[in-house]
Simulated scan of single mutants.
Amino acid sequence: MNLHYAAMTLADIDQVVAAERQLHPSPWTRGNFADALAAGYDAQLALHADGQLMGYGVVMLAVDEAELLNLSVLTCFQRQGVGTTLCHHLMTRAKARRAVRMMLEVRAGNIAGQALYGHLGFSEIGRRRGYYAAGQQREDAIVMAINL
């Protein structure tokens, strides 16, 4: 796969937010991404060799634990291994910063996301009932974790 990684900057946020709006029913806002950068979260872009955005991820580190807050792959690059390689990249970076475990939450209805995380070795450790807005309904969050 012909991709490389770069740290997300404030200059990247407009492009990332545009992708976010197309990908998610409850997308992160410009403010969410700006706040993540200001807080020092590890925000990475997956870029094609020509510089085209393929995906992005945001990880929060706290002491020895990492939380994957956002992992997104643009629709035209899905099912090509971008999510897998990007998640591996984020896990490697978290481990290098002394994290021993990574956690995440995924929508119960996001079967593709659950499959990706399961393939990577994440295991379900719990559920948060009604965590996500889903129209006028609520959707459970599946909490998953992996030891790094």
Rank of each mutant, 00 (worst) to 15 (best):
residue 30 R to A: 12
residue 55 G to D: 02
residue 75 T to S: 14
residue 78 Q to P: 03
residue 34 A to R: 14
residue 76 C to K: 15
residue 10 L to I: 07
residue 68 L to P: 02
residue 64 D to I: 08
residue 27 P to C: 10
residue 56 Y to S: 02
residue 14 D to F: 00
residue 85 T to F: 11
residue 37 L to H: 09
residue 69 L to E: 02
residue 38 A to E: 14
residue 45 L to P: 01
residue 38 A to N: 10
residue 28 W to R: 13
residue 16 V to T: 04
residue 82 V to K: 02
residue 43 A to M: 12
residue 43 A to I: 03
residue 35 D to R: 15
residue 91 M to T: 07
residue 22 Q to A: 14
residue 46 A to C: 13
residue 11 A to Q: 13
residue 89 H to F: 08
residue 23 L to I: 01
residue 81 G to S: 02
residue 8 M to Y: 12
residue 26 S to K: 11
residue 39 A to F: 08
residue 68 L to H: 09
residue 59 V to F: 07
residue 7 A to G: 03
residue 68 L to W: 11
residue 23 L to E: 13
residue 36 A to P: 12
residue 67 E to N: 10
residue 22 Q to R: 15
residue 91 M to Y: 00
residue 59 V to S: 04
residue 43 A to E: 01
residue 87 C to Q: 02
residue 48 H to W: 10
residue 92 T to A: 15
residue 43 A to T: 12
residue 58 V to S: 03
residue 76 C to Q: 15
residue 44 Q to M: 14
residue 30 R to I: 04
residue 18 A to L: 11
residue 86 L to K: 11
residue 34 A to E: 13
residue 41 Y to Q: 05
residue 16 V to I: 06
residue 42 D to H: 14
residue 50 D to F: 00
residue 29 T to D: 04
residue 55 G to W: 11
residue 58 V to Q: 07
residue 69 L to D: 01
residue 77 F to R: 00
residue 62 A to W: 03
residue 43 A to W: 08
residue 58 V to H: 07
residue 27 P to K: 08
residue 58 V to W: 04
residue 17 V to D: 09
residue 22 Q to T: 02
residue 64 D to K: 06
residue 62 A to E: 05
residue 84 T to W: 13
residue 53 L to P: 07
residue 81 G to F: 06
residue 68 L to V: 13
residue 60 M to G: 05
residue 73 V to R: 03
